[in-house]
């Protein structure tokens, strides 16, 4: 088990380097000048002193060959120096760590909503195969998969935020709210809509997956044996079927972690939620080079780690694979 984990982690290293090269090339192909923001902030200084531009280019190593720039960047991220954001004028790492909790709050809530809804619906649909409930679940899943998240978000804003005025339509909190419970309630009200929109779309994917995984297991001989031995349905499904069906389900749920971050970009933009996705979107639009490249790399690392997590979980939850490992090792 340990050696498997070690091997999988080592395999990530070359992939990490190739990804970093691709991301670096992409960002360098992006139009826009890193000094543009600086020039716009202070046009007069640049107009009076044309040499200043050349000096600054020299200072920021903007005219170095690409390969030198790449290794500089790589060295810097490996020692944890992510540089400054030209847009916000503060260190990128500070920005990322101030936005990350917001994104985590949103994605984890959406993730929990997703699991809490998808598990019972998926299980019930599999148990009552070909019932009305099962068919409506299938249609519901199709609807969820086909919903454009931004449209869903906009319609939710129009209905619940503007027409009914039940929920706030954007942001993280209302300015000027005090008192622990008031703040908590206010945060919660801001969280509901984005989290439901983000979670709902995932529910549709998971319901179908859970149903399929469980159906496959329910077909097995040992399930029939369990019934034959007189175990009641509840026991058979929970103790025998679900335990085996959980193996692929857990894997797919772990594999979907990056999708939450990706989907969060759109949902955060629509709801003006100050998280990583919106940070990156603004960085790309404003050609804030340091911020964009490091946010992107950060997301890529999260994707790699959740793939690793899925692989490891697969081995952890499936005792058959572990046995195999022991035999070999």
């Amino acid at each position: 088990m340990k050696s498997y984990f070690f091997k999988r982690t080592l395999e990530l290293v070359p992939i990490f380097f190739v990804i970093s090269i691709i991301i670096f090339m992409l960002l360098n192909a992006m139009p826009g000048d890193p000094l543009l923001q600086m020039r716009m902030d202070n046009p007069r200084a640049f107009a009076q002193d044309p040499e200043r531009l050349a000096e600054l280019r020299e200072y920021y190593h903007l005219d170095d060959p690409l390969i030198v720039k790449y290794f500089d960047w790589l060295k810097n991220i490996l020692i944890g120096d992510l540089g400054f954001s030209s847009q916000y004028k503060i260190p990128v790492s500070e920005l990322i760590f101030s936005r990350l909790p917001n994104t985590l709050l949103l994605t984890v809530t959406a993730w929990i909503i997703g699991i809490v809804l998808a598990l019972p619906i998926g299980i019930y649909a599999a148990v009552k195969k070909y019932s009305v409930f099962d068919y409506s679940t299938t249609v519901f899943a199709f609807v969820g998969i086909s919903l454009p998240s931004f449209w869903f978000a906009l319609m939710a804003i129009i209905l619940f935020g503007v027409i009914l005025q039940w929920l706030p339509i954007s942001g993280l909190e209302t300015y000027g709210v005090t008192g622990f419970w008031n703040v908590f309630l206010d945060r919660f009200r801001h969280l509901i809509m984005p989290a439901i929109v983000l979670g709902f779309i995932q529910v549709a994917f998971w319901v179908r997956y859970i149903r399929a995984a469980l159906l496959e297991v329910l077909d097995q001989d040992y399930i029939r044996t369990a019934y034959a031995k007189g175990a009641n349905e509840r026991r058979v499904i929970i103790r025998h079927a679900l335990r085996n069906a959980m193996i692929p389900i857990i894997t797919i749920i772990a594999l979907d972690i990056p999708y939450f971050f990706g989907g969060a970009l759109i949902v955060e933009t629509v709801f003006a939620w100050p998280g990583m996705g919106r940070l990156m979107y603004n960085a790309v639009l404003a050609s804030d080079y340091n911020l964009a490249i490091n946010c992107l790399m950060f997301l890529a690392i999260i994707t790699l780690l959740s793939n690793l997590l899925a692989d490891v979980l697969y081995v952890v939850v499936d005792p058959r694979i572990k046995l195999d490992e022991r035999k070999r090792g």
Partner: peptide
Amino acid sequence: LSIPLFPVLLIL
């Protein structure tokens, strides 16, 4: 497949 798709689409 490990590159976060949507941000990359934005940049591209």
